[in-house]
């Protein structure tokens, strides 16, 4: 057996097949992007340990993740906040972790998406379990996992086929196999959910241009929101979520920390649904009154309205820039935050 010959043939096949695979997926519109995974999140969470009183941390769900642009923030305020928000997540587990497991006493900007903030404190429910998994990963990550993440970054940035994306846009072998359906023995009622953002190393997220130009694409995401709203999910647990948050808030305030609440824009069917299930007066207003911290609802500021929300929930990249700037102007005017120049 000539193993040298075998290994050469093997390597040749592997390299050729991988080049073809990469070209194929690039032709299908995929690009090399980072994965918004637990490892990327943990790198940002680790930075919280070293922050000063002047620094800001963002927690919440996808709206604050899309709508607050870190570059705009840095340009205006002189320093970049830490982005810890993540899609489909309640902000409470991450807020709880920072309050109880770090010495940070700067400012935490909490994004309040009513359907998620007031959803639950049940550990196994998705809005809680997802962010908690990130928190747990951060606390338990090994040095080996940190190295793996470090080594994977250049690969993620170079190859489109290296992707952890799940669902309809997933292109690793496991995800590709999941898309094969033989008959309807088991029906997944959820419409296909496309990825419509790209993320950077600092976890800044921007909406893809396609969402602005391709109405059919935007409609696929709207269908998913409608699906979630039509489901017979549990009602919001206002009392438990609010109490949980307020307990941590008092602890954070006591050590000199500052909290700002932000309700980002939503639109259309989704906003109507939110107004019905989590009416402002009995959810947001009550939270603001009990929390007694600076709070900003987009409905109260004309400059935060009339922005483009192609799928009812998140701002386009350009409008996220505008939103960030306008929101920061309001904070500066209210002297809730000071720019680094004024410090």
């Amino acid at each position: 057996m000539n193993l040298k010959q075998s290994v050469l043939i093997g390597l040749l096949i592997t390299v050729t097949a991988l080049i073809a695979w990469e070209i194929y997926w690039r032709n299908q519109g995929f690009t090399a992007t980072l994965d918004d995974n637990e490892a990327l999140w943990a790198v940002q969470r680790a930075k919280v340990e070293k922050l000063s009183k002047e620094d800001v941390v963002l927690v919440g769900s996808s709206r604050i993740h899309f709508d607050i642009q870190l570059d705009q923030w840095e340009k205006k305020m002189g320093n970049k906040p830490i982005q810890l928000a993540a899609g489909g997540c309640s902000p409470l587990p991450v807020f709880h972790d920072i309050v109880n497991n770090s010495n940070f006493n700067g400012t935490i900007l909490v994004g309040v998406t009513p359907g998620l903030f007031f959803s639950t404190t049940f550990p196994k429910a998705q809005p809680w379990a997802w962010p908690q998994a990130r928190v747990d990963y951060f606390h338990n990550r090994t040095y080996a996992q940190q190295l793996n993440h470090l080594f994977s970054l250049p690969l993620q940035n170079s190859f489109a086929f290296i992707s952890e994306v799940e669902g309809v846009d997933g292109i690793n072998l496991k995800e590709l196999l999941k898309k094969i359906h033989v008959n309807n023995r088991v029906i997944d009622p959820m419409p296909p959910f496309h990825t419509f953002e790209e993320i950077r190393l600092d976890r800044n997220v921007r909406m893809l241009k396609r969402m602005e130009t391709d109405t059919a694409f935007a409609n696929t995401v709207k269908k998913v929101w409608k699906f979630f709203m039509s489901g017979e999910g549990p009602p919001p647990d206002k009392v438990a979520t609010m109490n949980f948050f307020l307990t941590d808030l008092e602890k954070f305030k006591a050590r000199g920390g500052k909290v700002i609440l932000l309700r980002c824009p939503s639109d259309g069917y989704l906003r109507d649904f939110e107004n019905t299930v989590t009416p402002r007066a009995t959810f947001w207003d009550e939270l603001v009154q009990k929390a007694n911290v600076p709070a900003y609802h987009f409905e109260d500021y004309s400059q935060l309205q009339n922005l483009t929300i192609p799928e009812w929930s998140h701002l386009t990249a350009n409008d996220a820039d505008i939103f960030t700037n306008e929101f920061l102007d309001i904070l500066i005017k209210d002297q809730v935050l000071l720019t680094s120049n004024s410090n």
Binding site: M1, S6, V7, G10, L11, L12, I13, I162, S163, N172
Partner: peptide, 28 residues
């Protein structure tokens, strides 16, 4: 078993396995 077939067959099998490992990736 691996020693019986010609070297190129083992090479092809080897290449296919490496390719499938690479496109499976896995998250460790």
């Amino acid at each position: 078993v691996s020693l019986k077939p010609p070297a190129w067959i083992l090479g092809v099998v080897w290449g296919i396995m490496l390719f499938l490992i690479a496109i499976s990736q896995g998250s460790g």
